[in-house]
């Protein structure tokens, strides 16, 4: 059987990949995908813990997280589309009117 730590390490690796993606990529859509990757890393961690603790709570949490992530995607893509209509770019470096 695969040990718990293996799942946790994969989860941590995915989470860090997401963090690095948010920090380094400039395309709003790719940043958004990185955030989703982070959420899925969390889901993996929850499921792994739930399996090894023999508790169902963690699996239930994952359903909630997936629902919330779907809502976030709907709102997020709408905001990105609204921005693209006005600016014709999704590069976050070019969206910088607010400074000071």
């Amino acid at each position: 059987m695969v040990p718990l730590n293996a799942y946790l390490l994969v989860g941590a690796f995915l989470f860090i990949t997401g963090v690095v993606g948010v920090a380094t990529r400039r395309n709003a859509l790719v940043i958004f995908m990185s955030v989703e990757l982070m959420l899925n890393a969390v889901n993996l961690t929850f499921v792994a813990f739930a399996r090894f603790l023999g508790s169902l709570d963690g699996q239930v949490v994952v359903f909630f997280v997936m629902t919330v992530a779907a809502a976030e995607v709907a709102v997020g893509l709408a905001i990105i589309v609204a921005l693209f209509r006005n600016r014709e770019t999704v590069n976050v470096d070019e969206v910088n009117l607010l400074r000071g």
């Binding site: 709003a28 997020g76 905001i79 921005l83 600016r87 969206v95």
Partner: peptide, 13 residues
């Protein structure tokens, strides 16, 4: 308004 788009996008991300 672009400033509001930008605000929404930054807050979201």
């Amino acid at each position: 308004r672009v400033t509001s788009n930008e605000s929404g996008l930054k807050y979201l991300l």
